[in-house]
Amino acid sequence: MKLLVTLKRTPQRDARIRISEEGDALDLDNVQFEVNPFDELAVEEALRIKEARGEAEVVVVSVGAEECEQQLVSAMAMGADRAVRVHHDGELDSLQVAKALAAVVEREEPDLVLSGKLAVDDECGQVPAMLAGLLGWPQASQASDIELSEDASGATVVCEVDAGLETVSLALPAVIMADLRLNEPRYASLPGIMKAKKKPIATLGIEELGDLGPARSRVTGFRALEDKPPGIKVGSVEELVQALEEKKLI
């Protein structure tokens, strides 16, 4: 079977993100990047499915400029077999990305698409569900457990919903979005990193993928939350309650 995992290059979790002086962009010059942690869960899950079934191809795909190949290599260092990069240098909105990915899916014809439930940078969490919508495939979000049927025609997925744990069954092909408790990703190992360097990355021009439409959702400015004021000491429980109320925390 073929598993397609979408992934995004996002700033490293502990990085301190600064805003450019003009306030309209982020200053990411000294920031290190990594595979979006939720997408990494999706990669891990794909690898586990591959290992459990003995035979499957794991393809990772990302939309972005050349530097996002580092993240594709990271995923291949974990064990993904090959990568596809849709080349685009610049901003795209979620729907454009979803359309580009849908075009890749139509070319690759995977049995299952796995994604993270959201990207930790913009925290939109839109692309995978849009992709499912564009493809007309069933979807399962915030998955904490995925079990494939023996003949790989369907999957039973446990989703973490507000009310508790929801179990759904999906006919494949489908799109499943990984949540935190789905698994614990493996560490990209040294031989894995070495092997990944030799695995193929196919590059597709975004213009090859049909009309993605205009970008209609744009971030035009950033603001820091009011700089966290220095901590204060309160003198009594009463003052503490008052301060919490002022901050709308209770």
């Binding site: 979790r13 990085a15 064990g79 614990e184 493996r186 560490y187 990209a188 190992s189 031989p191 894995g192």
Partner: peptide
């Protein structure tokens, strides 16, 4: 090499690298 380093040990390694 097998990626069999998980949990807090893996987190420390990732932090140290990043």
């Amino acid at each position: 090499a097998e990626g069999e380093i998980r949990g807090s040990a893996q987190a420390a390694l990732r932090s140290v690298a990043a």
